[in-house]
Amino acid sequence: MNIKLHVWRQKNGADAGKIVDYDAPDISPDMSFLEMLDVVNERLITKGEDPIAFDHDCREGICGMCGMMINGTPHGPRKATTACQLHMRSFKDGDEIWIEPWRASAFPVVKDLVVNRGAFDRIIAAGGFVSVPAGSPPDGNAIPVPKMNADLAMDAAACIGCGACVAACPNGSAMLFTSAKVAHLARLPQGQPERDTRALRMVNQMDAEGFGGCTNVGECEAACPKEITLENIALMNRDYIKATAVYRKERAGGD
């Protein structure tokens, strides 16, 4: 196949950046999208041109490192598929493909298609955990979890933190990401002691990072490679409202 690429090139965070066109001839339909970029890069290097920088690591759709807008949708046209798992057979000979980085002020561009998603880590650091240090927790079976709750928790916990939800959202909102962690832990008995403060802290951090608000358009859900649902956002809203209502100042002398 022969493909024409329009790729966002930006030297670094300070550079203005622009779309640059490349021809990509002789592409095998069995290549993954990233393998196609590898081939383009090998050719660029041979020609003495700077290769296109893009994040990637596991290339099996689980690490969440890769991610780019492919023809106007995060990770490209296939449902529930990361860029690394997208194959060129999803395109036709002669297709033009637009490739851009995630665009959000909370995800500043580092170079070309590489962005800084540190904001996600800070949201988790704000409360996306159960405060249980390594030590002597109760026996695993001492905490029974209804199968349905475990399954729903797992659905939410499947988030790979790739940022497609933010990239897809017309408001640059991180609600799907944040709510996936809130919901994962809210569905489990282990998450209950910190449930209220978790919702408050994580939403506060999410807002502080400069993500936009949710307007319930559902683009995030459609773009999510792990099919995290909007239901999680409703759950987080519910938890946040309740946590606001029952909030009390921590007592002095606490940990």
């Binding site: 609600m175 403060t197 506060n204 807002d207 608000g213 909030y247």
Partner: peptide, 12 residues
Amino acid sequence: AIAAPRFLQSTV
């Protein structure tokens, strides 16, 4: 992270 609710300032 601040735990105190900032309801009206928050996007939620």
